Computed example of a mutant assay.
Amino acid sequence: MFSGDWNFLSILRVLLDIAIVWYVLYKLLMLIRGTKAIQLLKGIFVVIFIYLLSVFLDLVTVRRIIYQVIMWGPLGIIILFQPELRRALEQLGRGSFFSRNTTSEEQEISQSIEAIVESCEYMAKRRIGALITIERETAMGDYISTGIPINGKLTNQLLTNIFVPNTPLHDGAVIIDKDQIVAAACYLPLSESPFISKELGTRHRAALGISEVTDAMTIVVSEETGSISCTKNGELHRDITSEKLAELLDQELIGKLKSSATKGWNWMVKRNE
């Protein structure tokens, strides 16, 4: 009886240990997603693979060099990635590493929605073509790297100014993350769906294409008609009003945020009952 209880407790302890490690790793990956730290992570895996290969093939010189890299690598990482490490420690100190401040995040998203809607309404009236992608859970680092870094506070004026015709950044897509314009003039994958209307241009195909491979929402302002369209999850909502656009953005961005926060709260309540 005692042995069985002990085995059960041992298994439970091991599972808890694994769950905590995986959760911390998940939060770290969410923290560095879309940053240059992701490239570092890929590099670390390459170095480890080369080291294992050198051990297997008995490549003495390569093994010694890689060993020195592994020994001094952590010091180099601390020096090169001070901002990311500082941000992680600040979040840990604020208690936001394991939980999100949904109130402040909701305010940021609300302000972003207002700026986007106002900008789209202005451009639609003047038939200024625009392609605006809003990053969500799926990281868009690969698409951001194809454009010009902006990393500026999202405002109606800045967003509109980017798409003014005959300016260097007006071609391509703007990628937004929360309340930041991350990059402009980005290239998005074109949808190859045979069901797309032939009257739709490149912007609409790009908007549908990115919605098919990520969970991002993309807004298109037509240069020819001034109509506003929105894509999500491979769906195209055409010729919508600015009010309908605000409703869609509120439903998808703020609605999902509240839903995830409610689920987290309910889980905590059940856990403490």
Rank of each mutant, 00 (worst) to 15 (best):
I20K: 10
I20C: 04
V21I: 13
Y23T: 11
Y23M: 00
V24F: 07
V24C: 07
L25G: 11
L25D: 06
Y26F: 14
K27F: 06
K27A: 05
L28R: 01
L28E: 09
L28C: 04
M30K: 11
L31A: 09
L31G: 04
I32S: 01
I32T: 14
R33N: 14
R33G: 06
T35E: 08
A37P: 00
Q39D: 14
Q39S: 12
L40M: 14
L40P: 07
K42D: 03
K42Q: 05
G43Y: 09
I44N: 11
F45T: 04
F45P: 07
F45D: 01
V46A: 07
V47Q: 09
I48Y: 12
F49V: 04
F49L: 14
I50F: 09
Y51V: 06
S54L: 05
V55P: 00
V55N: 07
V55H: 05
F56I: 12
D58A: 11
D58K: 12
D58P: 00
D58F: 08
L59N: 09
L59I: 13
L59A: 14
L59K: 10
L59E: 06
V60H: 09
V60M: 12
V60R: 15
T61M: 14
V62P: 03
R63H: 05
R63F: 04
R63D: 02
R64K: 13
I65E: 01
I65C: 05
I66T: 14
Y67C: 13
Y67Q: 15
Y67W: 12
Q68G: 09
I70D: 03
M71K: 15
M71V: 15
G73E: 05
G73S: 10
P74W: 02
P74G: 03
P74K: 09
P74L: 01
L75C: 06
G76N: 04
G76R: 11
I77K: 03
I78F: 00
I78S: 01
I79C: 03
I79W: 06
I79Q: 06
L80Y: 06
F81S: 05
F81R: 10
Q82L: 13
P83G: 04
E84I: 07
E84D: 07
E84Q: 12
R87H: 13
L89F: 15
L89E: 10
E90S: 11
E90D: 14
Q91P: 00
Q91E: 15
L92T: 04
L92H: 08
G93N: 08
R94Q: 15
G95I: 10
G95C: 08
S96H: 03
S96T: 11
F98P: 01
F98E: 01
F98L: 10
F98D: 03
F98W: 15
S99M: 13
S99P: 02
S99L: 08
R100G: 09
T102V: 06
T102L: 04
S104R: 12
E105I: 03
E105W: 00
